[in-house]
Amino acid sequence: MNILEIKDLTKHFGGLTAIHDLDLHIAKGEILGLIGPNGAGKSTLFNCVAGVFPPSVGDIRFKGESIAGKKPWDLCSLGLARTFQIVKPFGSKTVLYNVMVGAFLHTGSTSKARDKAMEVLETLQLDHRKDQLASNLTIADRKRLEIAKALATDPELLLLDEVMAGLRPTEVDDMIAIIKGLRDRGVTVFVIEHIMRAVMALSDRVVVIQFGEKIAEGKPEDVTKDENVIKAYLGSEYGAA
């Protein structure tokens, strides 16, 4: 069953077409990687799915129901959570507070929200930082916190926007393990990533977009051999060789 289906999605900003006629689907329990050069429209696609922008044309279906034009907070209640490429912690609050904000989605009780937040922090091995201010965290921990907040809302589909950018190689390995762990807990993951090693290790399937259009789709190892993808990343002279 497909948890997310995107049909003929087009998004214009004035005269600029950021996404053009894009079709995409994610099966339940899958990890789908989305790659593409800078400015390809990856984050715009995420923002359309997460309800930040309504699509100009086309439809987005989540669990079979059309969500085009729905607001971010409604989507979050439906089970669709996301992280931001530029992390947005509530900097003046503690790590635990940050995660509790997410955990309050399904409970009005402060103590239940705290338990839920602690559980999520333990899963992400961030519990030893719970009393630190979010603004004092290292970049690796901030990225984890970003995931923790989203995870506390109990999502079925999690959109991760470059959660590994700026991490050291060992931290990337940790993050890969964490994301795989999420999938094992039943969360479907849709991930934008630039670090190819991570994309290869993580994704069941990869979609490549360029100039707002899908140019390739398939298993990670096949996609990297695709001529169009090589052209998109390295320039046309390499593709011909």
């Binding site: 931001f84 947005k88 989605l105």
Partner: peptide, 25 residues
């Protein structure tokens, strides 16, 4: 100490992030 307080603080500090966590800021 209640959900309302957490939601107000979150919405005041980072509205976009708060909305993504299900808060109608």
């Amino acid at each position: 100490r209640s959900r309302m307080g957490y939601y107000l603080a979150a919405g005041g500090e980072e509205p976009e992030a708060a909305q993504a966590l299900g808060i109608n800021v």
